[in-house]
Design a protein around this nucleic acid. Structure first.
Lengths: 203, 203
DNA sequence: CGGTCGGTTGATTGACCAGTCAATCGGGAA
DNA sequence: TTCCCGATTGACTGGTCAATCAACCGACCG
């Protein structure tokens, strides 16, 4: 939430935010200096603090900005009555996986530095993270009510497994330096949905 | 790897290691001081460095000790010819989940401070972490070969989703302060195996 | 042309902490 | 009893960095 600003200063703010994402992705939040961000953005050290409250605040903003988009997609998938459960889940998975394809640095930062940081940022944003689980759980629950899915697995459990599955897949892409290809990403979505819905038992 | 020691000194070493687990679990690896560990163990600061190379080294040892047990269980589950896939997967899941039941601090540290720390310890131990994925993948692969599971989902993918699912369940137990009950744990195992093998589609 | 006020600069401050080290202790061997 | 050596102590060093702040710049207004 910048104070009222000119277009030029808004751009500079954005430049710092983008630079921060690159630096966080490359060095990790804990192992980079604020001066690295300033250097990467090509501005003076102090300017970072003109636009942001603190180093933590920058990461918070990166996370919240991205996570809000995902929550929107989940709501959208849950609300669209024309979709099957598989389509709904595929829509969410596709958004996450394609976010990684288009903005690997942002997604790496969101997952590695926030979502998986149980003691620091993960705890701070736990309620927000849970909003996503809750949204997924609602998708499952409704499908159970309509008979589209079996009713004997708790929806919140299914949601956690589904989300945990995606996160682990992204994590493995992030760790192994080879980037995912578009085909990898499409395959991951359909395999995930097929595993969770269809199960691994023989057809 | 302590140098040759008397029984008494081995005990003291153990006491420091146990104290470290408690401190890491409570404050987080990055937000505790080595002096916290020394205080918790009731020994002088310097003694920690008599028994361990560094603060990092302590965490490494906590992780490796526990992870080795898990790898053993995975090997055991993979090797026991009398077991069905579901039993094999349940055996692994039960071990993990019951480890949490018996040693919540240790498991919290292993997961929160190592396994999920993609930029620091997670990367350092990535190969070891992958050993677990590989073991699970082998279980799936063999079951596919015997026709016990469908063959069109890559085993390594299934393994990652399975492991990611457990980890996310444990994470949610860790974040929400309410401890898991024995019933929660049993239910988690059977729900996980049932979700992954049977799928969420109606029976 | 003087004044104002964001925007911009980077040196400095203050706090934090891992790891070192020289000194001391104490139990068993000679 | 003396000596030796591992065990034990905790003060201290060196380095790191987030955040502050006082000063400077320059565009626009009156």
């Amino acid at each position: 939430m910048p104070p009222r600003t000119t277009a030029a200063s808004a751009e500079k703010r954005r430049a710092i935010l983008d630079a921060a994402v690159r630096v966080f992705a490359e060095r990790g939040f804990n192992h980079c200096r604020v001066s690295d961000i300033a250097d990467e953005a090509g501005v003076a050290y102090g300017l970072v603090y003109h636009y942001f409250k603190s180093k933590d605040g920058i990461l918070d903003e990166v996370f919240l900005e991205r996570w809000a988009l995902m929550l929107e997609v989940i709501e959208e998938a849950a609300g669209d009555d024309a979709l099957s459960v598989r389509d709904r889940l595929a829509k969410v998975a596709t958004f996450i996986v394609e976010s990684y394809g288009r903005h690997p640095d942002v997604m790496q930062v969101v997952i590695v530095e926030v979502t998986r940081q149980a003691n620091t940022f993960g705890r701070k944003h736990w309620a927000t993270i849970q909003d996503a689980h809750a949204g997924l759980a609602r998708i499952v629950e409704r499908a159970q009510e309509s008979g589209e899915l079996r009713g004997d697995i708790p929806p919140s459990f299914a949601a956690i497994v589904f989300y945990g599955g995606i996160e682990q897949v992204l994590t493995s892409w992030i760790f192994d330096t080879a980037p995912s290809t578009p085909d990898d990403r499409r395959a991951a979505v359909s395999n995930l949905v097929e595993t969770i819905c269809g199960g691994l038992d023989p057809r």
